[in-house]
């Protein structure tokens, strides 16, 4: 594989589509590495607070309820499935299938963020606020909103990226042999899903 990439580069003076995809994937994994550090720090900070303030966490869990967040988790997992099914359709040569699945991905992402807003309103009404106001709940809020809202921002970026993918697909810019843009978006979107898997467990379940 490496040999053919080098051979084609030598012949034409620029990278083959496959070599370009590998380069993009490598760059994306490096970017994701930086994201891992940020989310690790945010989650670890929450976990340490949680271990030292079990009563506060229990109180918030009772106020917030788990069903809405569990449903949201299911939506995000489904969006990841829709994403990879879209890429599969493209690789099978079905561009319309790609558009349909990525549209579903974007829709599920929008619903996820909307329900997260509903959850924030509920928690805010219950006294869980971002700024420090003297109570234990506000100490919790600072550590809760930072990772979840940062994740939510990633979902919003992902939805915009999905719309860009759909726009590109409609213009015929992707094919069964040219899918680098879709695959790179997939890496990002699935990473956002992986982060939520841990946020859901460490913040809402434990």
């Amino acid at each position: 594989m490496a040999a053919i990439e080098q051979h084609v580069e030598h012949e034409h003076g620029h990278a083959s589509p496959q070599a370009r995809l590998e380069n993009l994937k490598f760059a994306t994994w490096l970017y994701l590495a930086s994201e891992v550090i940020i989310f690790t720090v945010l989650i670890a900070t929450y976990v340490v607070f949680s271990l030292n303030n079990r009563d506060v966490v229990h109180e918030v869990h009772e106020k917030a309820g788990i069903m809405l967040v569990a449903f949201n988790t299911f939506l995000l997992l489904a969006s990841s499935w829709a994403m990879v099914m879209g890429l599969r359709q493209l690789k099978l040569g079905n561009r319309q299938g790609l558009i349909s699945w990525i549209s579903l991905t974007a829709l599920l992402g929008v619903i996820f963020v909307s329900l997260q807003y509903v959850e924030y309103r509920t928690l805010s009404d219950a006294g869980v606020v971002l700024f420090y106001s003297g109570g234990a709940l506000s100490e919790f809020g600072m550590r809760f909103y930072a990772p979840t809202a940062f994740h939510g921002a990633h979902v919003i970026v992902g939805v915009l990226w999905a719309l860009f993918i759909i726009w590109n697909a409609r213009r015929g810019n992707y094919s069964a042999t040219n899918y680098a843009g879709v695959e790179i978006f997939g890496l990002y979107w699935h990473f956002v899903d992986v982060v939520w898997i841990f946020l859901f467990t460490f913040i809402y379940l434990i």
């Binding site: 994994w29 994701l32 590495a33 891992v36 690790t40």
Partner: peptide, 12 residues
């Protein structure tokens, strides 16, 4: 590529 996930996790 797995190192991109595991190594920063460890360092973080």
């Amino acid at each position: 590529y797995a190192l991109a996930l595991v190594l920063p996790l460890f360092i973080g």
